[in-house]
Amino acid sequence: MDTVSTIEGRAIPLGLKNVDTDVIIPAHWLKTVSREGLGKGAFETIRETPGNPFDVEDFAGAPILIAGDNFGCGSSREHAAWALLDLGIRAVVAPSFSDIFAGNAFKNGILTVELPQDQVDRLLEIAQDHPVTIDLENQTVTTPFQDRFAFEIDPFRKHCLLEGLDEIGLTLESGKAIEKHEEQRALALPWLDAPQRRDAA
């Protein structure tokens, strides 16, 4: 995974609440066996509407998206994160995120920044004409107008993003603990191991 530290540039002021994963990437785009190229399908229905923010030339290649409450609700499709990445989005700012989307974004090095609604509203206004800067190390979002909003982030996720760590590699470092758990589990909950498919009784 690439490291993430500072994300700076234009921010697409989408602003909508409850942006679900079917809106981020409709189901017919999920028939791929690759992670690449999903940007073409990102926000397909919104982009069909004339005057939508994705069409504004200033926002082409913008690395930040600003949205409303409960961003990424709905399906567990990681294609939503892959589509944003392919579109060039490296961070999403919103008052709240669905749990599964936030996890998927993190695994792909997309920063999800939670800020209160009034601060999101302020950023939506500024983003119309000005860039926004997100500093992960210092956990701040700043604007050219002295705005400085602090955000919280899970320390483990922050560490992984800053270092670009491979989560599977990290877990495998705990291989001994996993083996020990499996041994204890085999004694305590033996019916969970090696289920065999047999004809129904």
Binding site: S75, S76, R77, E78, I100, G103, E167, T171, L172
Partner: peptide, 22 residues
């Protein structure tokens, strides 16, 4: 609970997930 594809890979490889308790 539902998981994304990176987590599918993580479970396939390790039979575990890294999570915080809800």
């Amino acid at each position: 609970f539902g998981i994304g594809t990176s987590e599918v890979e993580h479970v396939l490889a390790t039979q575990t997930l890294q999570l915080r308790q809800s």
